[in-house]
Design a protein around this nucleic acid. Sequence first.
DNA 1: CGCCAGGCCGTGT
DNA 2: ACACGGCATGGC
Length: 236
Amino acid sequence: MKEVPHVGAALRLRRIYNRLVRVYGPQNWWPAKSAIEVVIGAYLTQNTSWRSVEISLDNLRNAGVMNIQGLRTIGTEDLKLLIRPSGFYSRKAAALKAFITLLDNEFSGSLETMSEQPTPLVRSKLLSLPGVGPETADAILLYALEHPVPVADEYLRRIVERHDLLVPPARGKRASYDTLAELSEQAFADQPLRNRIEHFNEFHALTVAVGKAHCGRTPDCAHCPLADDLHQSTSK
DNA sequence: CGCCAGGCCGTGT
DNA sequence: ACACGGCATGGC
């Protein structure tokens, strides 16, 4: 346990979560019908609005490649065309093909087999892939493989920084991903592992929901349902 | 027209 | 260890 946030930070973050639950209610993430669809969505939504991702997901469904075998056999150039609407298509197409290669080589081409392996092993394998950073790896672990890991994102970073949940030496700098993850872990450390999956699921969905709810980037936002401090903490 | 989006990576200090 | 620019399209 290193880089410990100052005392009480985890509890304060937990209270923010409780408030978000009350205000926004269940988010029912991840919006996907299968584990591989979650994986694909996790890649496509990198720095991309979910609206744009859905267009690509429709393309993949219509082309019959919204499954492991489909991704295995489709050519990279064809894949690029299908996912073009969600941007960065060249990198994302190559990245998705690399994921299937890893799945085939290390996990018998099965997401279920992958999910049965220890979290640290799967996480390190995912992070070794091109186009997979900590957030994408954790999103896959949590939402596709149902491992109890938190997912940190830019919205959580803003909340944590602006509510001063970091130790003094870290203030002024950007919170690292690992620090955010550690803080999230501590916020739910009182919960049994089984429940943590659901809480981490909801937590990340809610931080995104707050970001989306920031009413079109206008400074005033009179109709925002949240108190001003939390509201402002998520706006860019 | 400009900014933003459910990041990641290579490069430069 | 950070900060910064590129990646690319679609919505608003």
